[in-house]
Structures are given as C-alpha cells and as structure tokens.
Design a protein around this nucleic acid. Structure first.
Lengths: 109, 109
DNA sequence: CTAATCAATTAGTCAATACTAATGTTTCTG
DNA sequence: CAGAAACATTAGTATTGACTAATTGATTAG
C-alpha cells in the first residue's frame, strides 16, 4: 500500500458527493452550524458530523464552537495539495487548458 | 443521493492511490503497456486492468491496441472537470490563498 | 432544577470496492 | 498447428465506507 499523502486525504474527502456538497456550502456560505448543514443535506445529523470529521482531517474545514453550536467554515489552504498535484502536471495540460492560466492570472491581480 | 457529475468520476478515480499512481506514470511516461504498468505497481495484472477501466470511464486515459499489447496514455482533457470545479471557487481563494502567487510563478515558468 | 437543543460518538447494517486467483480471448512465435 | 504471451474478465473474498438509530455530553431555556 502506498503512503498516505496529503493529496490522498483531500481527494478522498472530495470524492464523496455528500461530503463535497458540505464543503461547497461552506465555501459559499461562510460559517454554518451543523444543524443547518444537516438541513441542507439529505442525511442525518450524525452522518454530517462524520463527514465534517473527515473534512477536518483533510484540512478542508475548521470549526468554531460557540455555546452548544459549532460553526464550521471552509479553509482554502486545504485545497493546496490538490493544486500542487495539478501543477505538477502543468506541462501535461499546459497547451490544452488556457483556463487555469487565465484563472490564476486573474487571481494574481 | 446526488447526481453523478463528471467531477465525481474524476475525483473517485484519482482518490485511490494505486489508480492515481497509474495515471501519474502515464502522464509522465507517454505510452505504456499493461505489463509495464503492472510491473511498476504492487498488484496483479488483473487489478491493473480493472483500474485502467475505471480511469478510461472517467476520461483520464485512452488505449491504443497494438498486436497483443495495449498501450495506454493519459488524456489531459480528462482533468477538465477537476479544473472546472476548482475554478468555480475562484472567489473563494482569491484573497485567502497565500501560496497562490508562488504556485502561479511555478506554473508560469 | 428540569426540559430541550446541538453536536459528537457508538454500534450495527448494507453496499461499494480493491484485490487475488483463475479462466477466456486474442495475437504472436517456433 | 501448438504453445506462449498480453490483456480482459469473472467469481469470490475481505475491507472500507456511508449511513441510520440510539446514546452521550454539553449548553441553554423555562
């Protein structure tokens, strides 16, 4: 079995549709508590807590407890391993995807 | 259950370490036949054929039969869903990603 | 203090999947 | 033609993983 690289955890975390939807909601909506994430999903609260645990271990989300609520937010740095992995294949898609280059230029501005 | 988007197949395909290693080898080494892919991996030939099937369904590799050999190559276009997904969170990283400038420089060089 | 609320955790179930071993199919070779 | 070689496919197994239901722990409200 191969070693568990950071990109491994990120890919596996984002491969599941339910979990990816949670991440997407957090990326859009700023801080959201577990109850609201549960409402937006089709699964139980327990399942959401489990997914949040995976996302946290992958470095994709962070938590902020407040009273009996726990507010989660997406952490952009968690996507770094994925971008690094893609950038490693830069030469591979360089000429076929002007998209990412434009995107990165735009972000850089 | 959520619909099966293209990014789903790509993420799931690349989430497995063995399968990702196959893709990486193909991305580096141009065309490679199944025997050589099997040698480079820690699993049996049958397992590699199964992984190649998944990668092909995800649009990440293509095959070129030649006699009794089958040469596989990575197909850059298959990464498009992943790049699109990332670009969708443009605004998300824009101001938060510390490493982005460095990453851009690396890719742009 | 007692109820209720929010979230995490546990145990258990079911389906998906990564794998091996064996076989099938095609193609090449002696 | 007979055997070997390359790859795909199948059946079977074991592990992983996504999920629910139920419980627990902590905080707030009445």
């Amino acid at each position: 079995m191969l070693p568990a690289l950071p990109v491994d955890a990120v890919m596996r975390a984002l491969a599941d549709p339910t979990r990816r939807a949670v991440f997407e909601q957090l990326a859009r909506g700023g801080e959201v508590n577990v109850a609201e994430l549960t409402r937006a999903s089709g699964v139980t609260q327990g399942a959401i807590s489990q997914h949040l645990k995976s996302l946290k271990l992958a470095g994709l989300v962070a938590e902020r407890p407040q009273g009996r609520n726990v507010f989660y937010r997406a952490t952009p740095d968690g996507l770094a391993p994925l971008l690094d992995w893609l950038s490693h294949y830069d030469a591979f898609w360089r000429d076929r995807f002007a998209n990412l280059r434009d995107l990165l230029k735009e972000i850089d501005s």
